[in-house]
Amino acid sequence: MKLRALVVDDEVYARRSLEAMLDGTGALEVVGSCANAVEALQAIRAQAPDVVFLDIQMPKVNGFELLSMIDQEVMPHVVFVTAFDAYAVKAFEENALDYLLKPVERARLDRTIEKLRRSVDQGKPPVYDSPVLERIPCAGPKSVRLVDVAEIEQVRCSAAGVYVVTPRGEYLTDLTMRVLETKTELERCHRQYLVNARHIEEILRPEPRGAVLRMRSGREVPVSRRYFVALRRRLGLRGDAT
């Protein structure tokens, strides 16, 4: 069975030529190609490809940041593709990431595919050590807006999607709750909420079933019993819930 591949590069010719090359190997099926990280995030969720060929230098969100934004549930194998850059190569080697240099050589690509094949056959989901996120891409009125994590007061999820809430407004994001919880300093306080401890003004109505947080903006965020103890400990308060 062919591996399902996604190509992500902001340069159209680079994309086309890599697509053609991957097709030419006969081992891969290109299921999509994206011009930036935001498109890629949606495509990964929709297509769940086995492997993503990922450019580093891209507008707004680079390849490394994109890696941090992918939910572990749909985490594909990732092969970085970059033009000559000694610094990037060093980073790949240190983190045992697979990479290809542009222009891509066929022989080198074949070796990479072999390796990919083996990993996929072993059936172990790939785990990458990726950096903490500082900016979260959100849908703005016209374009993509990057929201600083420090500015985020809470994250709320509903049937419509995941909303990032700042004192200035609410924005829809493609990142999952789990990614936001693991890759940022935001704390889980409820099945449907994450909260930024720095924005908490006070804890209201501690009760057996949890509590309510009042934020500096005046908004309120519920805390469920399950997360209350951990949150109190995190805030430096006593752990007992009475």
């Binding site: 340069e11 030529s17 542009k102």
Partner: peptide, 12 residues
């Protein structure tokens, strides 16, 4: 490098 990559990508 970027220019050469573009050229090679365009070769077809």
């Amino acid at each position: 490098f970027n220019a050469l990559n573009t050229v090679m990508a365009m070769l077809e």
